[in-house]
Design a protein around this nucleic acid. Structure first.
Lengths: 224, 224
DNA sequence: GCAATGCTTCGGCTACCATCGAAGCATGAA
DNA sequence: TTCATGCTTCGATGGTAGCCGAAGCATTGC
């Protein structure tokens, strides 16, 4: 039974961690769920047998991701039922407001601001998006060079795409991943616009006062 | 956690039994799940606490129904995931082919033929459907009078609607309930087109050779 | 009133399964 | 090769939860 797979707390935590669309290693998932690797291994093989997640070997790591959007959809549905009965799970998404606003997703910007940024890039025709695929336009290249001193040759990588849409768990929409997403986040840090929170293990990204303004000037949507 | 509620086999069987939209008593659900009433009582209170089902007292019976369509939707989603991985539950719907084809849902026709009938009524503009609501058109009234000798005044009832969409569990689509659904089923029986299976407790509806033809002439979709 | 039916609560039993320690493979690095 | 890292398999343990028998309420019918 599928539901019993999702029903176990440890497995639910793993699946929740995977809801952001990114693949995570077995150890990372073990840590997310707060269990030992050997226990996690058992859970992961069950989830895989149930068709909820798919593995991808890479070196001595084993990355897991949700099988597809259908799985994510059902998980969201379950979370929805849980939410309305007040049976909200502890980990059903970032509860910390700061975390919802801006956080690190692997190495790029996620949260409200991350989603906002991709929205604006798309609206200004700096990128073109078709489903998960994102392409940088000529205008986009000029924009990056002018405002962020990012040139296309900085973005080439043997295996990683320049642009990629990454599902934002708190916003339920896409933000920008890939080498460009990483480069932009790095640039924000270099420009002292933003910095990762000092708390060890925290994924919160704090914007400075001026950083917030500059960011809004480039990517703001007029909301605030 | 909601999923763990659905995960238990006994509870899943109960929920499955409720998927046809009808309310069932605690004892009936116990029988469906193959457990004793006292065990069922425990499960039912958990499902109720989780907001998946709602009770309705009536005399010394206690009827339970799914809370709403959202719950049914999530359950279908889970069943969908289960189906595609071959992890199909034993009881994920009627396994008996005859039961899938035509059966009694309370007092009206369900299964493949039931769904087919409503489809055709809709296609011929004999009824209009908007979500759960179904309305008989003027054409529909003429059709019923002409072919089945059913007049509108036979269908009025203080509390029961004339037409109602009822989710068909085996087909995952709607069939026709309400007083009209009941009247049509009754007419089929009177015309010796079909009859409930003689086996005690069976919900199978057997069509006669001529009944099948007549039914197909009125409601066939050309599939066979 | 008494009996019968339907459902719930209580207590104890049992079975399942999540968990972790220890050991075993695989991959990559030196 | 040898070592380290990441993950899996094995075995044993323990806690949880499903399960039923017995008893207790509630409602209906006589």
């Amino acid at each position: 039974m599928i539901a019993s797979l999702v029903g176990d707390p440890a497995r639910a935590n793993m699946l929740t961690a995977l809801m952001n669309g990114r693949a995570l290693t077995a150890s990372e998932l073990a840590q997310e769920a707060g269990i030992t690797p050997q226990t996690a291994s058992s859970h992961l093989s069950k989830l895989e047998a149930g068709g909820l997640i798919e593995p991808e070997k890479q070196g001595r790591h084993r990355y897991y991701r949700l099988t597809d959007d259908d799985v994510a959809g059902v998980l969201e549905g379950l979370a929805g039922l849980a939410a309305r009965t007040g049976h909200m799970r502890v980990r059903t998404g970032p509860k910390d407001p700061a975390l919802r606003r801006a956080r690190i997703c692997y190495d790029h910007l996620a949260g409200d601001l991350g989603v906002q940024m991709l929205d604006t890039l798309r609206a200004k025709n700096l990128v073109k998006q078709r489903k998960q695929e994102i392409e940088l336009t000529a205008d986009g290249e000029r924009f990056l060079a002018k405002h962020l001193q990012i040139s296309p040759d900085m973005l080439t990588h043997p295996r990683r795409p320049v642009c990629k849409a990454c599902l934002d768990w708190s916003e339920r929409r896409h933000h920008l991943a890939g080498t460009l997403g990483a480069a932009m986040m790095q640039r924000f840090a270099e420009l002292k616009w933003a910095a990762r929170d000092a708390t060890p293990g925290s994924r919160v990204v704090n914007f400075t006062r001026t950083g917030e303004k500059q960011f809004a000037a480039l990517f703001g949507d007029g909301r605030d």
